[in-house]
Structures are given as structure tokens and as C-alpha cells.
């Protein structure tokens, strides 16, 4: 009997150890997967690109917005040359040329020329344009579809950034990027809720927009400034004030008069706080993506 007990113990002890090991392994595997599976909650997943190394990689940004946060604002920054830019906007049913792009908030606005190698021959041969806005000294908030061509599964090989451009010719100097960050929800399935991107520039600026997250933005009076891809407007900044007329968890519609090329334009209030980014139009009414908790967290994480 004692012999039998010994044999049972001999079998059960290894089983116990194996169970322990297996159980522990499961927990480790699950902990790893947790980072991915909860990327929409605790951590947010982005496709990132480093220009120097030419590497694309997945990066994770910790969510810094709490459920109880009704509104969070990262303030705008002025470089001392401007007094408060607070202004009242009128609401024309069209675009208006910006007379002086060298003052805030217009000097935070950029035009991007995005180049792609669609035919895979190593040279950049296909170009589009988009708009954007500095939201930190080296960070530009813009739309995803300017730098990611979903139909071709291609990211831009080259992005030339022109800051506060407002002239009849394209300057020979431009700002280059050191990298960019795109939501993987956009690159994997073109989920329009995530049509936004953050570009990182090689040089810094002294003035930038603030950005705000809020759980309610109904009827917020806003302005947008950017560039239109029709030659009558080339190189000249246009602005179009409006009202954010409706919104969902991720997107808004507005009365901002919007044409092609304006995609990526910052939608900002009279205190230079960006609340969203234009991504498209419906009957010339601009619509786009809000500064969600994801956007806010990624920008905070990149500062």
C-alpha cells in the first residue's frame, strides 16, 4: 500500500509541477496578448515609421484620458510675436483667402506634398496634397489618408511640409519629417473613425495650436485653415469658419465649407485649440475626426 502511495506521489508531483509551469506560461502569453487586445482601451496601437532607419513598427500609447474627464485642453503656444489671437469668426458660405499667414493661428498651418512610389521602382512618382497644423513644436496633426493610400496599401515615401505658405510660388525650402504615426485601425481596414495621423518634423517651430478633448462639442464655433488642390488656390492659404453641427464618439460634421486638399486641416476655436481634423466633405460641408481620447493620448505621449 505504501508502495502504491509512493508511485502515485511520483506521478502526481511532476503533474503538479507541469501544471504550475503551464499555468504560468498561459498567464505570460495572455499578458502579452493583453497589450494587443486592449489597445483600444488602456493602450492605443499605432503604425509608426522612422525616416532615418526606414523602419515601420507598431507602437503603443497609454490612454491618459479618464472616463471622468469631461474636457482636457493642452494650451496653444505663442512665440511672443503675437498677442492673444482670440477673434470672432463670421460664417461665409465659401472659402476666404488668409491675408496674413505669418500671425497666429495661421502660422501654425502647413501644406503637405505627399509622394508615393506606386510602381515600386524606387523613385517617388505620384503626389497628392493635404493640409495640417502644428500642435507641438515638432508635431503636426493631419488626416491619415494624405500619407496612407489604402487602395494601394502604400505609405508616403516622402512628405514635404510647407509652413504658413501663402504666396504665388512654391518655396524651394521645406520641412522634412523624422517620422509619422498612423492608427492601425486605418491602415488595416480604412476605418474612417481613425482617419488621422501625427507627423514628426526634423525641425521645431516656436508657435503651435493647442488641442482639446471634450465629450460634448455641439455648436462649437470653429475655423479651419488649409490649402485647396485647385490651381486658383495653389500655395494660398484659405480659411473657412463654421460650426461643429453634430458629432459621434469619433467624428463630427460641420458647416465648414470644404474642398479637396483641405483634408487634414485643423479645426480650431478662437483660442487656437484644435478640436478635430477635416477628412472629407458632404455637399461642401466639412466633416472629419475629433480629437478623441486616442488622439489626445498619442499627442501627449509624443511630446
Amino acid at each position: 500500500m505504501r508502495n502504491l502511495k509512493f508511485k502515485i506521489r511520483k506521478i502526481l508531483v511532476p503533474i503538479t509541477i507541469i501544471s504550475f509551469v503551464l499555468s504560468f506560461s498561459f498567464e505570460v502569453i495572455l499578458a502579452d496578448n493583453k497589450t494587443e487586445s486592449q489597445s483600444g482601451n488602456d493602450e492605443f496601437e499605432m503604425l509608426s515609421y522612422d525616416v532615418d532607419s526606414g523602419e515601420k513598427y507598431i507602437s503603443y500609447f497609454k490612454n491618459v484620458v479618464k472616463d471622468t474627464d469631461a474636457e482636457l485642453i493642452s494650451p496653444a503656444h505663442f512665440d511672443g510675436l503675437d498677442s492673444s489671437p482670440t477673434q470672432q469668426y463670421s460664417y461665409p458660405d465659401s472659402l476666404s483667402p488668409v491675408s496674413n499667414a505669418n500671425v497666429s493661428p495661421y502660422k501654425n498651418v502647413v501644406m503637405c506634398r505627399n509622394g508615393f512610389d506606386l510602381n515600386n521602382d524606387g523613385s517617388v512618382e505620384t503626389w497628392n496634397i493635404s493640409s495640417g497644423g502644428f500642435v507641438y513644436n515638432d508635431l503636426i496633426f493631419t488626416c491619415a489618408h494624405g500619407i496612407y493610400w489604402y487602395a494601394y496599401s502604400k505609405t508616403a515615401n516622402v512628405v514635404r511640409v510647407y509652413k504658413a505658405l501663402n504666396s504665388s510660388t512654391l518655396p524651394s525650402t521645406y520641412i522634412s519629417l523624422s517620422g509619422w504615426h498612423l492608427p492601425t485601425q486605418y491602415t488595416s481596414s480604412k476605418d474612417v473613425n481613425y482617419d488621422w495621423a501625427v507627423l514628426v518634423t526634423t525641425s521645431t517651430t516656436g508657435s503651435w495650436f493647442g488641442y482639446g478633448y471634450a465629450n460634448s462639442i455641439t455648436n462649437k464655433a470653429v475655423n479651419s485653415a488649409g490649402y485647396v488642390d485647385q490651381n486658383a488656390y495653389y500655395y494660398f492659404m484659405q480659411e473657412s469658419p463654421g460650426i461643429m453641427s453634430s458629432y459621434s464618439s469619433y467624428r463630427f460634421t460641420s458647416t465648414i465649407y470644404t474642398l479637396g486638399g483641405q483634408s487634414g486641416s485643423a479645426v480650431f476655436d478662437s483660442n487656437s485649440i484644435v478640436w478635430g481634423v477635416l477628412t472629407g466633405t458632404l455637399n461642401a460641408n466639412g466633416r472629419g475626426c475629433l480629437v478623441t481620447s486616442h488622439v489626445y493620448s498619442v499627442l501627449e505621449g509624443l511630446k
Binding site: V124, E125, T126, W127, N128, H145, D229, G280
Partner: peptide, 10 residues
């Protein structure tokens, strides 16, 4: 309302 045109040049 996507912009379906792109410019080709090297």
C-alpha cells in the same frame, strides 16, 4: 468626395 486624382511626376 475623396479626391480620386493624383499627380505623376519625378
Amino acid at each position: 468626395n475623396d479626391d480620386y486624382y493624383a499627380f505623376c511626376a519625378i
